[in-house]
Design a protein around this nucleic acid. Structure first.
Lengths: 239, 239
DNA sequence: CGGGGTTTTGACATGGGTCAAGGAACGTGG
DNA sequence: CCACGTTCCTTGACCCATGTCAAAACCCCG
């Protein structure tokens, strides 16, 4: 049920039977949402955290001019608001982009883990720190990379992250987002996303069509983005 | 010694005597650096974390073209690499912008806290989560705000953060950064930072001169940035 | 087979980048 | 305390990546 999440933890550190059991027991229920639904509204008081089990979701901020900026795309196995456990209220919204299934973990369960299981707590802490690392990479992406680099970065990052939870198939992965949504991630306009995708396609770097992304020339794409996967912390280390 | 940091913790939650003592005992030494020095290099293996006591420092990534993007400006009281405790190696560098004094906290001390003091651990966790919130705001700043908005955002955020540790004086604060460094924060060129500062000055919103920023028209600046301080989580809540 | 949401494309506008040069500020050595 | 070099700031002229606006074309899905 929360197997994708467990897989993410195990990719970085050992997880004992006891810890795994504690995690699975922490989930009290699951909930399904249709596409384009706001699940958590900026400013809500939180008493539980939401773990994405299937589908694509996003954290976003609404701007005064009606635009929204997507802060991070969430994929299965992501805790979309684990930071809400500490913050208690959240400075952004969370919504679905496709139909999504969530597991709900009450903060009381997280508090118990934090009181009684220090190692598991550190692994949860690590998850929020990995999120921050992804945010940092997006600060540099939006601050420094041109349009082609932003899309290349997006595709490469997603490929690595989806791979980790077994959702990439070779050089291809499902990506049922609209070009407008890609624009909200990359800080570009939908029109320019369209042109940039065309450029990537014509240069045989990658295609994004009919809900799938295919990486045609990994080396070329990595060059385009100046991609370095270090920030994804894919290696195992004891915490 | 680490009073700024303690002040930041107390701004959000209670901190017992025992916890305060444990924190103060965790510092094993201090170290002074001159301006423009790289303190932690991207990829270094970390066994200790650095707490900034005085001066301005920055986390940054070097780009392939020689530019660098500053990910977050650090002010006194900031743990510049508390996330390094979990990550063990870090995906960016940390350097000084002005002369800086750091306190050094070994990871062994943090591990002990994490094993024995769950509430204090949560407060440390919270600090990394607050960093992530700042990163998120910068994702939206770089993705959505035009040059004037970026500078307005920077000045307002800094004013709040410096205020929290008692380093703002009314509507003014020390800000001894170069326009090139402001460019590295805001993802602009130094030339355009100069022009944008001029615009803010001429519109009587803010001045940044001779190492000081002065906010002349707070409401106007906030409007320019579409500023909302929620993400700084300035309210007290039990964790 | 009709109609909403997408994707594509073209023509044009503009915010911010680039290049270049002069001026102010400031630390350092004499 | 001055002279000088170096770094930083400022401004002008020009350019380009991306935004804007608008209209087709496409594509599901009902």
């Amino acid at each position: 049920m929360i197997d994708h999440f467990i897989a993410k933890l195990r990719a970085r550190d050992d997880l004992s039977e006891v810890e795994e059991t504690a995690l699975r027991a922490a989930v009290v229920q699951t909930k399904q949402f249709r596409a384009d639904t706001t699940v958590i509204r900026s400013g809500d008081e939180l008493t539980q955290s939401w773990l994405l089990m299937s589908g694509f979701a996003a954290r976003f901020k609404d701007m005064h001019n009606g635009n929204r900026q997507i802060l991070e795309l969430n994929i299965p196995g992501d805790f979309v608001d684990l930071h809400g456990f500490l913050l208690k209220t959240i400075d952004h919204s969370v919504g679905t982009l496709t139909p999504c299934m969530f597991a709900i973990v009450p903060h009381t369960a997280l508090t118990r883990i934090s009181e009684e299981m220090p190692h598991l707590s550190r692994l949860l802490w690590l998850q929020t720190v990995l999120d921050a690392a992804i945010h940092r990479e997006w600060v540099t992406t939006l601050g420094q990379r041109p349009a082609t680099g932003r899309l290349a970065q997006l595709f490469l990052e997603l490929h690595y992250r989806l791979n980790l939870v077994g959702l990439a198939h070779g050089d291809e992965f499902d990506f049922p987002l609209t070009q407008s949504e890609i624009a909200e991630i990359t800080g570009l306009t939908p029109v320019h996303v369209n042109r940039t995708l065309k450029a990537l396609r014509e240069r045989n770097l990658a295609t994004a069509r009919s809900g799938k992304v295919q990486i045609l020339d990994r080396t070329g794409l990595e060059l385009e983005a100046g991609f370095d996967p270090t920030y994804l912390n894919l290696t195992r280390r004891p915490r």
